[in-house]
Nucleic acid binder design. Structure first.
Lengths: 349, 349
DNA sequence: GCTAGTCCCGTAAACGTTTACGACGCTATT
DNA sequence: AATAGCGTCGTAAACGTTTACGGGACTAGC
């Protein structure tokens, strides 16, 4: 018994007038507009989503697609990013919802279903794969979207990504300056793109310093705590002289697993092993203090939201910078974990 | 140019027949049904969400309300729960989406907006407060919902919660059996209900063992890493003889902060301090191994989904157990962090 | 006083889907 | 052979909203 005609009847005006009053259209007197808005507030009327979006062809919803399941990395990360996104969306009466793709469903099929159903006006995709069919699909359907993460699939689409090249540059050369020659890195076992970007830059930095690339120092792992933990044991299983003496790890959740795993095998970060990692709520309290890369996740969310809106026709006037394809820098926060090699006592067997 | 009439035209049948065929209604021949479904699959037709839910008055969507922002606790937790929920929903063509309430918006207002807009058919709310207006609101609007977490607000509604009484019983009496008399606990600074439940049970267990309750052993903190970390320093700031010698901590993310904080102040878990905590992906790799309570988050999600569907008229025949208001047990996984007091060397100042 | 213009507001169509209703053709029964 | 029944399908209304269109009332200008 709620609905616009109910409210209109209650006010003795037509439904058209009510709609115009609430949507700020010009063809309504200030007196009746005030009357309508007050009545709506008093009676708790809110336009029905289905009716509105059916008529307008837009939902006022932006979807953030993410995959659920314990395999995926945890998501303190996302909560802060979401908050940044929403602070932008709130200004435009847009709602952000997380579209949860079950681990049992194919991500590409999920995305097609979401789009065809007309669920959201725009999408944000994350965990981009090296080749990502979602990008081609969204571009071909002309759905506004932005990717959090680069991909080799290029549809001229907007994206934002962390500066993995910068982290490789700063992190690896910092360890080299501290005397390290054997520096470990990880390769994600799924085909998320970020791993490849980092490894490429990592190789380039080594080259610049005249250090030969050793494929044994690239440790394949799942991008979660367990993956980091496993790397520690993989290192310990190597002959001592072939082990890395330091590690640059751009994945924040892996840091915790690696840290604790290393301690279990007698490789103590900051003592006889060097780590440069990624900041996170958990990593912030590691002992000894983790030297890490940090960025404001909230600002990342804000940039993501603004860059997305810039590509949506309805908002281009508010955000008049075209397609953004940009890398956001991270700051190195010195800690005690990136010890110099000279200071390292012999690693325990 | 997609839509049901487009598909109907393409097949030379009426839109009514197409709709009936796709929705499994009886009034359609098997031959045309097959023809319609194949064409739909081939042309990639999926019914428009707005049109469908406008007509049916249902959206096929269940919303999981959660608050974003870095203040809230992180959510490796939720990802696994989501996966369990979805494995149930998938059988009924229901979609789960996370409704993200910005930290800048009032949760009660957010909920009202969501409900009034007719966004979801049912809701799951979490982080229940001691008195929670959302419960009364949803009950009065007769929206199907379930709460993850108890509350003193009781609308006869369904809920599921972790067995905090059981954790207090097992955890506290275990530490007492190991010689501890001064056992710490935490009280959440926001008014989430779980804190109160645990503290009440904690007091009762102490009483049963004839140990006086000391309010100084209840540490107020935010339920995140930083909160756990702060507790360590609060403990260190106490005169040594008034400090707790052990701690039972039911919040999984706080464990990491507390663990590392304690090490910083010279109170080493498993050596001169005892901790019983909650299992999590991060906590699993703490050194020394954390003695903790564990449960299957996926199964929790499954129970949550089934209990919710049991209260929805359309699904009561599939899940014919009425309103569930139940506590799910946790298993104690022994580690090395709950050291006996006799084994504790003198705590360092 | 007539016309043009302006300001409000009501009317009705449209968005895409589901579904009650009725129509049609066929078969089986009497 | 007439009728009842069944299986199949088309027609049209309905869901709640937005918006193009037109009309009425009033003002201003001549």
């Amino acid at each position: 018994m709620t609905g616009i005609k109910w409210l209109a009847q209650h006010l003795n005006v037509s439904i058209g007038t009510v709609s115009r009053a609430l949507n700020g259209k010009p063809d309504v007197s200030e007196a009746t507009r005030k009357r309508v808005m007050e009545a709506a507030a008093a009676l708790g009327y809110v336009p029905n989503q289905a009716g509105r979006s059916l008529r307008k062809g837009a939902t006022g919803i932006v979807g953030f697609m993410m995959e659920t399941g314990s395999q995926r990395q945890g998501d303190v990360f996302f909560m802060s990013v979401f908050d940044g996104i929403q602070s932008v969306f709130a200004r435009h009466h847009l709602d952000l919802v997380a579209l949860l793709c079950s681990s049992e469903e194919d991500p590409d099929a999920f995305m097609q279903r979401i789009v065809a159903r007309g669920f959201a006006d725009a999408l944000i995709i994350s965990a981009t794969k090296r080749v990502d069919h979602r990008i081609d699909f969204l571009a071909s359907r002309k759905i506004p979207f932005i990717a959090l993460g680069r991909s080799e699939t290029d549809a001229g689409h907007p994206w934002l990504d962390l500066d993995f090249e910068g982290m490789a540059e700063v992190g690896v050369s910092r360890l080299i300056a501290k005397g390290h020659r054997r520096i470990g890195a990880f390769a994600p076992l799924d085909d998320t793109n970020l791993g490849f970007v980092f490894i490429d830059a990592y190789r380039k930095v080594l080259e610049q310093h005249g250090i030969a690339f050793d494929p044994d120092l690239i440790f394949p792992a799942h991008p979660n705590e367990q993956g980091g933990h496993g790397i520690a044991y993989a290192i310990a299983a190597m002959p001592a002289e072939r082990r890395p003496t330091g590690f640059v790890l751009t994945n924040e959740v892996m840091c915790v697993g690696l840290y604790n795993g290393l301690q279990e095998v007698g490789l103590i970060p900051g003592k006889n092993f060097a780590i440069i990692g990624r900041d996170s709520a958990q990593a912030r309290y590691l002992v000894p203090k983790l030297t890490c890369f940090r960025l404001s996740l909230r600002e990342l969310g804000i940039a993501l939201a603004e860059s997305l809106l810039a590509t949506m026709p309805a908002y281009t006037d508010a955000y008049p910078f075209g397609v953004t394809r940009r890398v956001v820098p991270l700051e190195l926060v010195p800690g005690d974990s990136d010890v110099a090699i000279a200071a390292q006592p012999q690693a325990l067997a």
